[in-house]
Design a protein around this nucleic acid. Sequence first.
DNA 1: TATAATCATTACAAAATAGTATAGTATATT
DNA 2: AATATACTATACTATTTTGTAATGATTATA
Lengths: 159, 159
Amino acid sequence: MKVSALEEYGLRCMILLAKNGDSALTLPEISAREGLSLPYAGKLLMILKQSGLVNAARGRKGGYILAKPAGEIMLREIFSALGEPVFGSSHCERYTGDTECCIHADDCTVRNVWGAFNEFMSGYLDNVTLADLASNNGHIKQYPRPLNKSEQNNEFNRG
Amino acid sequence: MKVSALEEYGLRCMILLAKNGDSALTLPEISAREGLSLPYAGKLLMILKQSGLVNAARGRKGGYILAKPAGEIMLREIFSALGEPVFGSSHCERYTGDTECCIHADDCTVRNVWGAFNEFMSGYLDNVTLADLASNNGHIKQYPRPLNKSEQNNEFNRG
DNA sequence: TATAATCATTACAAAATAGTATAGTATATT
DNA sequence: AATATACTATACTATTTTGTAATGATTATA
């Protein structure tokens, strides 16, 4: 289970733009401040632009800026632009082994594991904005805690 | 954010072995029942064997069997064998851009996002066993729910 | 209108992951 | 012992992801 480079660096660029407020940042600036090569930063921002998350201006006074206020950008939008959720709609089509359609299509045990992750992440992605990340200087003190063992035993349907 | 093929198919094989109880399954059987090619199933089981999760017997009556009861195998062990947790120890070394060490090493905003996922997953992986997955026929009714907006506002340290 | 700074686009190269092929080694059965 | 059924190991190929290169298009300014 891995975060892709696009997701990692793309989210970083979005946070950078959010912290920079209303003034635009150029590719050379973004590249320098994120430690990315210029072409790669360009590629990232292009993806973000094509997803409608940032606006670009060409020419001498050009640069990139958020397409809307950071407080109105949910994390989900950013992740959707950069990749897929862990258990996305394509998951079952992706892992079909040798067969046309997954052999567990009817009765899948694994699906529930990814489903649990996915539900948690959905709650997170749909409730946290880019501004939340940018404003607190990167120090979220507490995360939604995981359930302890007895809570899990209550909530899971065993046997 | 993606589940790797190894994680997906490896976990499926473990569940299959768990459901099969005390009798061994051969590679041809595993291959057929999971819809995987024989060589690929072999590769998977080899990884699981080298991690100590399954025992193998060679020869005519050979096959694979869980190395210990499914109830004593935490999901974490399986995932550790097959890949890395989302925000593992190598994450910050992995995404350093062009620089030797990540430019955000001191003050990283993104880290908290992955950290939240990671904490949730840890709570899950450390509390759910392979038997939990195998015994309920794949139908977990309820997952640890995500926090709602007001809970999040309480738990997060804003601005 | 020339120029420098900037974004845009396409094609390519490198690395990691996924999956296959082939040739072994071990064991139960006959 | 011969054989069929299994696991083991290594090397190879294909695909996806990651990152680079090179060239073109746009705009502010002098």
